[in-house]
């Protein structure tokens, strides 16, 4: 069954207070080499039917219309065949 893995992140330049706090927490624990932390969302969709091209189109639309807010977020996804 095809599974789409969608990653939603805040666009570059959008303030991410959660990421900043995590970054600070890592600094206090001595991880000095972590220069930037960005928090996002990971969403899995199990899909049926449709050709790979159609699925790609469909997941793109779902990601654009519901899973992300294009004003502040961007997304990427990949579709894998999983048993």
């Amino acid at each position: 069954m095809p599974v789409a893995k969608v990653y939603v992140t805040l666009k570059d330049g959008i303030l991410d207070p959660q990421g900043q706090i995590i970054g600070k927490a890592l600094k206090t624990q001595g991880y000095d080499n972590v220069s930037r932390v960005r928090v996002g969302k990971f969403i899995e969709l199990e899909l049926t039917g449709e050709t790979p091209e159609k699925l790609k189109k469909q997941v793109d639309k779902i990601s654009h219309d519901l899973l992300s807010n294009p004003v502040i977020e961007s997304y990427t996804f990949d579709i894998q065949e999983e048993a």
Partner: peptide
């Protein structure tokens, strides 16, 4: 209204979380 596109812009978490 923002999500529906009836008003421009978007809401983020409060600055101080």
């Amino acid at each position: 209204l923002l999500e529906a596109g009836l008003l421009p812009g978007a809401m983020l978490r409060n600055r101080d979380l």
